[in-house]
Amino acid sequence: MVSHEDVKYVARLARLRVEEDELERYSGQLSSILNHIDKISELDLTEVEPTSHVLKLSNIFREDVSRPGVSREDALANGPSVENDAFRVPAILEG
């Protein structure tokens, strides 16, 4: 049900590398999980409101006051590649 193409597409979106020899395993596992999941399609829920929050909260705002953040040293401390006070990454091609 989840084809090799689906796995490739999804892996691409999620920036995961899936080797050719892994495709079969992933498509099999994802298919069996989705088989089980598809149970929810039995239900007619056209009249039901979706829930994205169990809490009935709204309008939680911060006051617009600035406070010092972290030092540059702390900001960069965990960086795997740091140069000239900034994070270094491979060249970005604009899309």
Partner: peptide
């Protein structure tokens, strides 16, 4: 596996059938 599963459920064309539907199921469980 879970990242791919979640990405699949949100990807275009599947949102309503999976994520949307699951949110409604959540309402029923509540």
């Amino acid at each position: 596996r879970r990242i791919m599963l979640g990405t699949y459920a949100l990807s275009s064309g599947y949102y309503d059938a999976y994520y949307g539907q699951a949110q409604k199921v959540r309402t029923l469980i509540v």
